[in-house]
């Protein structure tokens, strides 16, 4: 790793050598991001701008006689102070916390397991993607068949193993319902996180491990001092991935619990859909959407700060 750091400083020195080179590098960099940037700007600039503008208006399209009324930041304040929004955002963050707290260690372990050779490795790794590709509606229906109070697999297994004596309506208890939703969601995201970790593991040069082994480092020391720090950039990606997923989750909840019992699983994605398409409060929904986006980016910055030490060591 020291080698790497030195190499990077060397490169910077090399670039600093002449100003023209530096200028040219900037230009090249700009040129390289242009296609992507152009695409995003041309397709999304207007919708984003539009939603930003209407987030400043009281606009409920089913009541045209009220008309769009400029209200400044009122929608934002209303969303921030609404107990429903706070509760829904809290639930989404809970989903993210479960997905991260459980998902990161689990997916890292899975990646370590699947990174070693074993028969049918390609097949098992290929299967990894299936939970993630199941459409949200199918996932929702699948889990509703698993948690079903009458014909569910979970009740069936636990009953036949003698763990429960009576079938349990799993989604009836508010706290348990939210946890079960989080677990169902984690099942779908862990495989994706595992895949990203696997790719990360594959790009760690074998020599580093060999050197460490010669130095007498045990399994845990190697994991702690090589694997974990080198996977930090991937961990960052996974943190962001899971957070976006939790903040935008909608169809799984919609199909599985409908946000119930009594709003106990109403996540922010669900609340937003409701505001936009059921209640038609577009101004308010747009403000909420921007708040969600800002939260997500805020968390991303936070995650970057936390994971930076690992990146710096590279």
């Amino acid at each position: 790793m020291e080698v790497t750091i030195r190499a990077r400083t060397n490169l910077h020195l090399l670039m600093a050598k002449s100003r023209t080179l530096r200028y040219r590098t900037r230009l090249v960099g700009l040129l390289m991001i242009t296609p992507g940037l152009a695409m995003i700007v041309s397709l999304l600039f207007y919708p984003l701008f539009h939603s930003l503008v209407i987030s400043l208006y009281d606009l409920n399209i089913r009541a045209p006689w009220l008309g769009p009324r400029f209200v400044g930041l009122w929608n934002y304040l209303q969303a921030l102070s609404s107990p429903d929004v706070q509760a829904a955002a809290g639930r989404s963050l809970y989903l993210a916390a479960v997905g991260i707290g459980l998902g990161i260690p689990l997916s890292m372990a899975f990646a370590l397991i699947l990174n070693r050779p074993f028969p049918l490795r390609g097949l098992v790794r290929g299967l990894l993607i299936v939970p993630w590709i199941l459409p949200g509606t199918v996932q929702g229906l699948l889990w509703s068949r698993i948690y079903d109070p009458h014909y569910g697999a979970l009740n069936g297994v636990l009953y036949q193993l003698g763990i429960i004596r009576d079938y349990i309506p799993w989604l009836l208890d508010p706290q348990r319902a939210l946890l079960l939703v989080a677990l169902a969601n984690t099942w779908a995201t862990v495989p994706m996180m595992t895949l990203l970790y696997l790719a990360g593991l594959q790009s760690i040069p074998e020599e580093i491990y060999e050197a460490a082994q010669v130095d007498g480092a045990g399994w845990w020391a190697r994991f702690r001092h090589i694997t974990l720090p080198l996977l930090m950039p991937i961990t960052l990606i996974n943190l962001i991935l899971k957070t976006i997923d939790a903040l935008t989750l909608f169809d799984l909840v919609y199909v599985l619990t409908g946000g119930g019992p009594a709003n106990a699983t109403q996540v922010i994605g669900y609340y937003l859909y409701d505001a936009a398409f059921q209640r038609l409060e577009y101004g308010y929904a747009s403000a909420l959407a921007w708040l969600i986006a800002l939260t997500a980016v805020g968390l991303t910055v936070l995650y970057s700060r936390i994971t930076r030490p690992g990146e710096a060591r590279l």
Partner: peptide
């Protein structure tokens, strides 16, 4: 490479992706 706004541009990119598609 050194980018005009550095990482801030990257966060800006990400902000775009994080606005829920429903309102767009």
């Amino acid at each position: 490479l050194q980018m005009p706004l550095g990482d801030r541009l990257l966060y800006l990119f990400l902000l775009v992706q994080m606005v829920p598609v429903i309102v767009l």
